[in-house]
Amino acid sequence: MPEAQTPTVLIVDDEDMVATALRSFLELETSYRILTYTSPERALEDVESEPVNVVIADFMMPEMDGITFLRNLRERKPQATRILLTGYADKENAIRAINEAGLYYYLEKPWSNEHLKLVIRNGVERSTLFNELDTRVRALEGAHQELFDIRKRLVRAFL
């Protein structure tokens, strides 16, 4: 399953130029799969069928603000690392974003590519770890269930 192993970064910004700039940079510097959207609603629709590791969302978008978008995304992809990109250095919004959307990072425009790369790499790592933990927990649960079944069968055999 090679696709699942390539981490996916989702970029949502109503400004095409920002989405493209981010995509160009990340495609050059990383091997992640990059998905870009200029409509947060479309992104939410499509995300159901996609694995997502990191999401970068703009704050000021006409359809839906970044915080609402990230909150909605959290319900669908709880493992994804959420990053807000904003033109406003607004403390109030930052706090709201952290509390409501369980934000991982708050980036201000204009951003530094190096910094962004670092944040995304950490985000991917975090999400991968979460996913791995999830897989392990599930495996553990499966094993546990199996053991339980075996025990049940053993008990039945002896009685």
């Binding site: 130029m17 700039a21 981010l22 190096e114």
Partner: peptide
Amino acid sequence: INTPLGALNSNHDT
């Protein structure tokens, strides 16, 4: 101006 400037800034680095 911040939005295009942000894009330009990132692009320059890219």
